[in-house]
Design a protein around this nucleic acid. Structure first.
Lengths: 332, 332
DNA sequence: AGGGCAAATGACAACGTTAACATTCGCAAT
DNA sequence: ATTGCGAATGTTAACGTTGTCATTTGCCCT
């Protein structure tokens, strides 16, 4: 039962509030929290009682300022919703939370200006490291990160000139693998659908280069609006195409639904598919639907975990290629 | 071009480093950042040059300590991956980031002890508010939140005794609506599949109570392992069942794939479905697959935005029911 | 010439904690 | 009886900002 005193300002109790109640100095309370074995058992339990009574929770801001260690890491993703990046955030946060790190999350929404802004917002909280999907879109962003003097992990790609650590896979080669597969299958008219962010563009480049090198006619590229994945439209704009590489599984499944509505889809083995379709990401959904979705499998969670380990690691390799795997199911 | 001085410790420049370079006191630099109009134009541009030269980014930790305003909010979700909660995080963060708030993200992994722990980890960073999915699982967690004396939003449900703000919908009524629909359709043998977290259980209760009240035999409840959404197994355990309510769309789609593999599935209008199936969440995938998935539509992003607005709001209503909508498509 | 005032700038304490030293106390060793 | 020492506790100055209250100018009035 607590009696409301006039000056009770309803703000979190401090070290010295606890100290006062326990009749010790604040440093003793601090020691009870951090190095209890240095405090006499009798004093310790008095302090612990006071902490419990007041509901004391240490102020990590003050701790961070005093020790110059914030125990937080900044995470920048294009978007957290509807997306393969959620797995990456889950992975890195599973790795980091047990170590006492807080995850500060920011979204760039695929916008370079917003990315720079969020980068400096993150940096202003003095995270001990930054993990981002992709690489800074602008030189300004890269400079910010370099000046910060903290570990930086770029993920989901293998940048040519990384800032620091890298945990990703070769998006260009993913495009190569898909094109090669289509050509080996005897497909003639290829197309690529997806966004135009840097990673999707790399996939396109690998796809396009390879298709042409192997003698197919120039593939078409259709840039989809980020929300329009239920793209019946895509089909309308791709007459005569017999093989499609979608930059991610969500686009692929949207396109598949367009195919179905247009009556182009029959269940069964790939050979019977009038339009072959391969996605990227290996969403669980892709395995469950019919026809099941062929895809470039990428382990988003492992990317997150690896990035987390890299920014914590003192030495060792700084660049890890997690690879990908072409998984052929019914759709292509 | 910068010459490396011996004592260059590679740590972020401070207000007084900038001040020294510009030949003013630190408070003047602070004013250039916060109230530039109080500083003489000539001084101001000198300071701005110094800031640019050093790449100065204000230390928000120190700001927060000095002003007792951290401009951060804590967000606690069961999990961010594979999940409807990502939309909520997206929504709230879109609302909060433009206002200068940082989002500190934590995951409870559906574990009560971990939830309490993450709650106090969040609180130790002194967020100005907490937004969580669901309600604290333990009395200890609730106490922590109440003592913190900051706005708290519980989401995705309508708790009987909320701590503070609420943005959710009535999970019990969702179960009621689905049961009623199945019974009206003439279904006889109902089942519920999904997790056993509090919200799923509320759905089950509404479903079960209503089915029995309307004269159906007692529905079966199958608690699924959180990862086992590709549950062919579920089907094996539900012989004779002709209508299934899945606690979320991911489970529903997994079950649908089980049905398909077992040869129980034909495309077409609901009346022909041997097993009716309704999910919850209205994942975009559900709309795209065949047969398209019937579902309880819930707007996760709106829940996030609303929660954000509620914790910022000075007055006004503290409890908002965002509702849900039964969307009947091909699967049921 | 003196007072008054506004514009520009600065000094200093505070925010809640920790690091680095200090102090006190009792007791064992000489 | 003094010294020395370790165990327990305390004091003080940081950490990088901001709020509050000076102080210094220059200039306009009368």
């Amino acid at each position: 039962m607590s009696v409301a005193s006039p000056e009770e300002t309803r703000s979190a109790p401090t070290l010295s509030a606890v100290a006062k109640l326990a009749g010790v100095s604040s440093i003793t309370v601090s020691r009870v929290v951090r190095m209890p074995e240095l405090v006499a058992p009798e004093t310790r339990s008095r302090v612990e009682a006071a902490m419990r009574e007041l509901g004391y929770v240490p102020n990590q801001l003050a701790v961070a300022l005093a020790r110059a260690r914030t125990r937080s890491i900044g995470v920048l993703v294009p978007t957290i919703a509807n997306s393969i990046f959620a797995d990456t955030v889950q992975g890195l946060s599973d790795e980091l939370e047990p170590l006492g790190y807080a995850v500060i999350l920011a979204q760039s929404r695929y916008d370079a200006a917003r990315e720079d802004h969020m980068l400096s917002v993150l940096l202003s909280r003095r995270p001990e490291a930054i993990i981002m999907v992709g690489s800074p879109a602008t030189e300004e962003g890269a400079r910010l990160l370099r000046r910060a003097g903290i570990p930086v992990a770029e993920t989901w790609d293998l940048p040519a000139t990384p800032i620091d650590a890298v945990a990703g896979f070769n998006n260009y080669e993913a495009g190569v693998a898909v094109a090669r597969h289509f050509i080996e299958q005897g497909r003639k008219s290829l197309a690529f659908i997806g966004g135009d962010d840097p990673r999707a563009t790399r996939r396109w480049n690998g796809f396009n280069d390879t298709a042409q090198a192997l003698g197919a006619k120039a593939p078409r590229r259709l840039v989809l609006d980020r929300n329009a994945s239920g793209s019946v439209a895509a089909l309308a704009e791709l007459p005569g195409v017999d093989a499609v590489f979608a930059a991610n599984d969500a686009h692929a499944i949207g396109f598949m639904s367009g195919l179905r509505k247009a009556g182009f889809l029959r269940n069964g083995p790939a050979a019977e598919q009038p339009v072959a379709l391969i996605g990227l990401g290996d969403l669980e959904m892709g395995r469950l639907i019919a026809p099941s979705l062929s895809t470039i499998r990428v382990n988003g969670e492992a990317i997150g975990r690896t990035a987390a380990r890299l920014i914590l690691a003192r030495g060792g390799p700084r660049h890890i290629d997690l690879g990908f795997e072409l998984v052929i199911r019914d759709s292509g």
